[in-house]
Amino acid sequence: MSTPAHAPPAGGVAAPREPRRSRPPARLRKILLPVLSLVVFLVVWQIVAATGVWNETFVPYPSTVWDAFVAVSTTQDGTRGYQGYLLWEHLYMTLRRVLAGVVLGVAVGVVVGLAMGTVPWVRRVLEPWLTFLRALPPLAYFFLLVIWLGIDEAPKITLLALAAFPPAAVATTAAVAAAPVGLVEAARALGAKPGQVIRDVIVPAALPETFTGIRLAVGIAYSSVVAAELFNGIPGIGGMVKDASNYNNTPVVLVGIAAIGISGLVIDGLLQAAERRAVPWRGRA
């Protein structure tokens, strides 16, 4: 009879096991991988800039961009930031506009999506208009908003709201339409009124996809910031980027792009954390 693979050898002394290679904890790996990718990106950027294939006006050194970051973040030789505003002031104004536009667009989008998902004739009436608006790039109607609303804050916030509205409405509509029919019918059979069915069954079932739509809405609104701040956009990151591009000031443009991207990552992380708190059942039910 053959000896089992796990049985100790003759003599009763087990062979020493090879030491297991230790792996960094999962949380540490989550931090190390992004940091490693950033280091690789900076090294490649430095090499490309050093080759001189492109003029430094188009591809500045990372150190030049860092100097621009310091310049727009501080007061140097009597010059305060960029166009009289520090970087955080530009970012604050942009975030304020994005917040106002996203809150307005998402609020209307969720309400419209809920109506479209629960009332068939509302969906038939509004869906073509929603598709039409989704297909329009922000610049296509921004100049019309400027004609109607002027060049102050109103056209900027309206543009961001119109950019955030379609993804929130579409995601909510699809989520409501996909609510479990069995649960809806069971609630009705137990005597729940239409309002109770929507509040206790449809809305909780739709929340996960609605949060996805909100994240998409924030991303699309953020991508429209430069367009929203084309006119009278300073202070504002988009206005700073637009103004710097007029003078081929690539380092400042890259600083603005980095500020938009990093703040966007932070906001998306906060939305994911809020989603985990508000929808703990996602992926489990």
Rank of each mutant, 00 (worst) to 15 (best):
T210F: 04
A174E: 13
A5N: 13
R282F: 00
L149A: 11
V125G: 14
V170K: 02
Y141D: 00
R284H: 09
I147L: 14
G219V: 10
A163M: 10
L159W: 00
V253F: 01
F142L: 14
H90Q: 08
T94I: 05
R188N: 01
P166Y: 08
V44D: 08
G239N: 05
A227K: 02
L28G: 10
H6G: 13
T173H: 04
L33G: 02
R23G: 02
L38H: 07
I262G: 02
V13A: 13
P60F: 05
R282N: 05
T57N: 11
V176N: 01
Q272A: 14
W54G: 02
A15Y: 02
G238S: 12
F231R: 12
N248V: 14
V197G: 07
A164F: 10
I220V: 15
L87A: 06
L86F: 04
A187N: 00
A258Y: 04
T212E: 07
W88Y: 14
Y247C: 05
L230I: 14
T172N: 07
Q46L: 13
A154W: 13
L160S: 07
A178P: 06
H90L: 08
K242Y: 15
F142W: 05
T118R: 13
S2R: 15
L230P: 03
T57H: 09
F41R: 10
V201S: 06
R134L: 15
G11I: 00
T79W: 04
L183P: 03
L190Q: 14
V111L: 15
P137T: 03
I234W: 04
T51R: 14
I47R: 10
G11M: 02
G113R: 11
V255N: 00
A71T: 07
E229D: 03
R80S: 05
L99M: 14
A7G: 02
A161G: 11
G182M: 05
T118P: 07
L162W: 05
E18I: 11
I202M: 12
T51F: 15
N249D: 12
R188S: 12
A274V: 11
G101C: 14
D268F: 09
A217N: 10
S37T: 08
L38C: 13
G195R: 02
F132N: 03
V108E: 07
I31G: 12
W129V: 14
G109I: 11
G195T: 01
V279L: 10
R284Q: 09
D152N: 14
A14N: 01
S73F: 04
V111Y: 04
E18N: 13
R215D: 04
R17I: 06
I31K: 08
R29D: 08
F231S: 02
V181G: 00
K242A: 15
V184M: 09
V43K: 12
G113Q: 08
R17H: 06
V13G: 02
R188Y: 01
R199G: 07
M240R: 03
R20P: 07
V184K: 09
G191W: 12
G238N: 04
S37I: 02
V44Q: 06
S22H: 14
L87V: 00
L126Q: 02
A169W: 12
Q76P: 00
E127W: 14
A186L: 11
L130Q: 07
D243Q: 15
A244P: 04
G213M: 01
P235I: 03
V255T: 06
L114F: 09
L86R: 12
P167D: 12
Q76R: 15
P8D: 10
S63I: 11
